[in-house]
Each structure stands twice: as structure tokens, then as C-alpha cells.
Amino acid sequence: MGEVRRLVIAARLEEVRDACDFVVEAAEAAQLDERAVYHCQMAVDEALTNVIEHGYAYQGDGSQIEVTCHTDLNRFVITITDNGPAFNPLEHESPNPAQELEEREPGGWGIYFIRKLTDDVAYQRVGDKNRLILYKNLPTAIQIGGPDEGGEDLFPTRMVNGDVIIYPAGRLDSNTSPMLEQTLKSQLEQGHYWMFVDMAAVEYIASSGLKVLVAIWRRAQERGGNVFLSGLQPRIVEIFEMVGFDMLFEIFPDLDAARAARSQQD
């Protein structure tokens, strides 16, 4: 077994970003490629958010979660340990991505993503602790032996020739998604039912971000509008395709293409 890296965080959503950065550093040190590193980051984000939301019900300020990373033979291993109530997420049925899009619930995708983004996942109850273990295979060539406040600032909005355009950037995770939701809901409340979300600067999206986009899309549809997405990076497109949301949203390579398509619908 390789060197064990260890991080302990408070059971708060604000701490999840630090844990993700820790895992990224460890995965890069294990020589995982960029795509695999991204998968590890997202799986850990989903796992920690799940623990904080469901295990501690957002009341875990006095509790801690331990995250360790190491390499073991041909795998990169991430172990997440918490002292919340016994809970095996693998026993719960994941959402069905083949279900009709209109019938899908936007939530409940965390464990689905964890299973899809890792090569194996296991749960153990050790004493009074939950232990979730995530495995990502190492490339064959290197297998080894032995938040800020202020949603408007984060998500600037412009009105261009009558089109409402929102420009999210960086990470759409459990910390920033509520601010994105606030920004989009504000536009709906102002009667702007057709919106463009230019995601060219979005580097990362978790299920919380997807949940917000789907919820706003549904509200816009109910009012005869729509939400157009543009500029998605390949890694973001992969996540949308993984859950079939590429069939739900109208997605365009860039903002100009999205606006041109909208103009043709008038």
C-alpha cells in the first residue's frame, strides 16, 4: 500500500471544497489522467454532500468527516469515514436514467454518480462509524506493487436585445448552486421565461447544480418558456449524457448558436 494521505473536515458543506481539492491533489500524485481525476473529485463531492445532508441533516458542525487517499496495487482508493447514524447508501435504489424525462425527479442522483464515476464502491459499518470506500483503477502503465456571498457577482446577468443571459463560472456545487437558483428564480419572477445559460466558464458541476437547472427548466416550461444551455466543456457534457439530461435541455456549442436557434422559434 502506498502513502496514506489524510484530511479531517468539519461536517459542513463549506468544507466540501477543501476535501475535493485534497482528493484532486492525491489523484494527480497517483498519476490518474485528467478525466479520472475529475471523476474522483465529483464522486467525493457527492459522497460528502450526501453524508452532510442525510447523515447529519445539516447539523454536523460539531462532527468530523475523515477522508483518506492511497494507492493499493492497481487502484486509487478514497475512504470517507463519518460517525453519523448507520446508513448504507448502496442499499438505496438509484434513479433510472431510462425513465421518461418528464417523470424524473431532479434529486437522488448522488449515489448514481458515485457508482458511474468510480470502478467500484463499498460500504462498511465499523464500530459506530460509516465507511464508504471508492476505487478508481490506475492506468496500466503506472500500476504499482504493494463561498462567497453575492449570487449576482458569481452569476452575472445581461440583457442583450431582449435576451436574458446568465454567465455562471467555476464550480456549480452544493455551496454555489443555491445562489444560481436565486439568480434564475429572480429572472422568472420578472417574467423572463426564456433564458440563456452560457456555461463556457463552468469547470465543474455536481448533482446539486443539475438539480437547480432542471427545476428552473421545468418552471420555465410551465410558463411557455425554455432554458438554453451553451458552451459546455466536454467533461460537463459527459455528466449530462450520463443521466440523459442532454436529451432534456437544448444544448448548443456556443451562445451565438443558442440565440440563433431561439430567434428561429419566434
Rank of each mutant, 00 (worst) to 15 (best):
R6T: 15
A11I: 07
L13K: 12
R17S: 05
D18Y: 14
A19V: 00
C20K: 14
C20P: 01
D21C: 13
F22Q: 08
V23T: 11
A26K: 02
A27S: 14
A29Y: 07
Q31I: 00
D33C: 11
D33E: 13
M42K: 13
M42W: 00
A43D: 11
L48A: 03
I52E: 08
I52M: 12
E53I: 03
G55S: 13
G55E: 11
Y56F: 15
T71G: 11
F76Q: 00
I80M: 03
G84I: 07
P85H: 03
P85D: 06
A86W: 06
N88E: 09
L90T: 05
E91Q: 13
N96T: 06
Q99M: 14
E100A: 15
E100F: 10
R104S: 05
G107K: 11
G107H: 05
G107L: 02
W109Q: 10
I114N: 06
R115P: 02
L117K: 09
L117V: 04
Q124G: 00
D128Y: 06
L134A: 08
L134E: 03
Y135S: 09
P139Y: 14
Q143W: 07
I144S: 09
G146H: 14
G151L: 05
E152R: 13
T157S: 04
R158S: 12
R158Q: 15
D163S: 06
V164A: 15
I166T: 15
Y167G: 00
R171L: 05
D173G: 04
S177G: 02
M179L: 09
L180A: 13
E181F: 04
Q182R: 13
Q190K: 15
W194N: 03
M199P: 02
Y204D: 01
S207Y: 10
S208T: 15
G209F: 05
L213D: 08
V214S: 08
A215Q: 14
A220I: 10
A220G: 06
Q221F: 13
E222C: 04
R223S: 13
R223Y: 03
G224P: 12
S230F: 09
P234N: 14
R235V: 07
I239Q: 06
M242T: 04
F245R: 01
E250D: 13
E250R: 14
D266Q: 14
